[in-house]
Structure formats: structure tokens, C-alpha cells
């Protein structure tokens, strides 16, 4: 069906962001991979594509999308898919991922990761869209659990049950965002450990770590702060269940010096090592 590159990759990486381009190109940065936002490089040319090519010569690159809209009831955008396919063929990325969400309906694109109702109808639709994407891309996709700020009245399953069936029916894998689990667990009052126990651990290929902010009534997934202690604790719990997986820090706003992110990545390495020691 589809290629499954990166299935045994368990390195540590960072999201590649413009303030750090120069250091990545001119210094040795101790990471095993970088992840880029796919859409930022689905362009005809210019410096961003040059940077991407340079990075690809140095280390594996993961492509992380925000606009596939696998939950759109009017299907995938074929122009988008063709452009992503061209980028995938050019980069030969470690992973190709996007979010369990929808962004687009009837030609309107919110550019926000909007929540899906976890119903049989949505599950059928998302399965069909992901299968189509994997067929076009000729490779397995990783689907990321989103942070959500509301739940719908007619939901018939939990998010982790939805993801479990999704993996089973499409052959896709998971990008587990541990911060998103924490944010949604606090916002909706579920047990994050039950979430970890409910997902198919053997399908998790990559983990995102990030920070969040306290809004007036909800935690908000802002990616503008260091990874906080409760997210580190949840990461430790996840590594007990998922011993071999790629991990990265995802920082998108108030981006600190690269050294700060590398320090955070060292914490992740220590937690992963501790998990391995305990497992042994």
C-alpha cells in the first residue's frame, strides 16, 4: 500500500524556524532531525527552498502540515495534495504528518485547526480522506491529535478511540502531541493516562513537546513557552508505553535562542533514557 519510512527512527529533533536557519547551516547542531511546516515550502522557489535543500543534505527532515484538512466534509483539495506530493518527492522526508481536524469548507479556509465531532460519520470521512492522501503520496501519513477547546453534543467515541480505529482502517500512524493531550484533558476533564492507554502505542512514530498558556476558561495551545512540568510528566508516562519513537520540541512563538531549545531536548533525552532503564 504505502511506504512506511521512519518506522524505527527514535532520534531527537527540533522544529526548524527562521531565527535558527543560519545556525543550522553554519554550526553543528546536535539534533537527529528537523521538522518543517510543509506549507512554508510548497512554493516555487526562493531562499526557503534553498534552506530546505541544504538541511536535507545534513539530516533527515520531517514534513508537518497544517492545511490538508483531513476532516473536511467536501474532501481533500487536490491542488494542495499535488503540491505536497511534489515536495514529498523532492525531500524524501522522514515523516509526513498533519492534524486530526478540519480547516476548510465550501472554499472557505479558516487556517485554524478546527475540532471534529468524534462520530461514525466523521470517522468514515477522515478514513476516506487519509486513504486518498496516502494513495497519492504513496506513503504512510502520521496524524496528530489536536488541542481542542470544545466538544460536540453528538459524539459517540473518545478521541483516542477515534484514533485507534483510524490507524486500524487506514494504516496511518500517529504523531502524538503530548502537550495537546494535556491541554485537551484539562479543557474537557478526561484522564490523560487513559488517553495514553487508549491509543495504539505501536503506531506512534513521533512525539511533539510544547508549551501552552492559560486562557480565561481554557488552556490554549500556544507553543510560546517552554515545555511545562506536567507535560514532561506526561511525556515520561508516554515513553513507558512507547519505548522507540522520534521526539521533538515544537516552538512557534516567542522563539528563544537555539541553545534553550537544545537544553529542553536534553531533558527529553534524559526522560527517554530513564524510561529505557526502568523498562530494562
Amino acid at each position: 500500500m504505502t511506504r512506511e519510512p521512519g518506522a524505527s527512527f527514535d532520534g531527537f529533533g527540533l522544529g526548524l524556524r527562521p531565527p535558527h536557519y543560519q545556525q543550522f547551516l553554519t554550526e553543528h547542531v546536535p539534533v537527529d532531525f528537523v521538522e518543517v511546516i510543509s506549507e512554508n515550502f510548497m512554493i516555487d522557489g526562493g531562499r526557503p527552498r534553498y534552506i530546505l535543500d541544504q538541511m536535507r543534505e545534513r539530516m533527515p527532515v520531517a514534513l508537518h502540515g497544517v492545511s490538508m484538512s483531513v476532516g473536511s466534509s467536501d474532501g481533500l483539495d487536490l491542488d494542495y495534495l499535488a503540491r505536497l506530493k511534489a515536495l514529498v518527492d523532492h525531500v524524501d522526508p522522514l515523516f509526513v504528518s498533519d492534524h486530526l481536524c478540519w480547516t476548510r469548507i465550501d472554499g472557505f479556509n479558516s487556517h485554524d485547526l478546527l475540532p471534529l465531532p468524534y462520530t461514525d460519520e466523521a470517522l468514515d470521512l477522515v478514513c476516506a480522506n487519509i486513504s486518498q492522501a496516502q494513495d497519492v503520496l504513496q506513503r504512510q501519513m502520521l496524524i496528530e491529535n489536536p488541542s481542542t477547546y470544545l466538544q460536540f453534543l453528538d459524539e459517540t467515541m473518545t478521541e483516542w478511540q477515534f484514533l485507534d480505529v483510524l490507524c486500524d482502517r487506514t494504516g496511518c500512524a500517529l504523531l502524538l502531541d503530548v502537550n495537546n493531550i494535556f491541554v485537551s484533558a484539562v479543557n474537557h476533564g478526561f484522564d490523560p493516562i487513559a488517553y495514553l492507554d487508549g491509543i495504539p502505542a505501536d503506531r506512534v512514530r513521533q512525539i511533539h513537546l510544547a508549551g501552552h498558556s492559560q486562557g480565561r476558561d481554557r488552556l490554549i495551545d500556544t507553543h510560546d513557552k517552554p515545555v511545562p512540568p506536567p507535560v514532561w510528566a506526561l511525556y515520561a508516562a508516554s515513553r513507558h508505553r512507547i519505548p522507540s519513537v522520534a521526539t521533538m520540541i515544537e516552538r512557534d512563538d516567542d522563539i528563544p535562542p537555539l541553545a534553550d531549545l537544545l537544553d529542553e531536548l536534553d531533558i527529553a533525552r534524559e526522560i527517554a533514557c530513564e524510561g529505557e532503564r526502568q523498562a530494562a
Binding site: 477547546y149 466538544q151 481554557r218
Partner: peptide, 13 residues
């Protein structure tokens, strides 16, 4: 589609 508690979430989006 959502109950009254969801208003805060709707406002965030």
C-alpha cells in the same frame, strides 16, 4: 451542536 459550556471554546476559535 454544543452545550452551554462550550461558549468559551467557541470564543477561542
Amino acid at each position: 451542536w454544543v452545550d452551554g459550556d462550550a461558549r468559551a471554546g467557541l470564543d477561542i476559535y
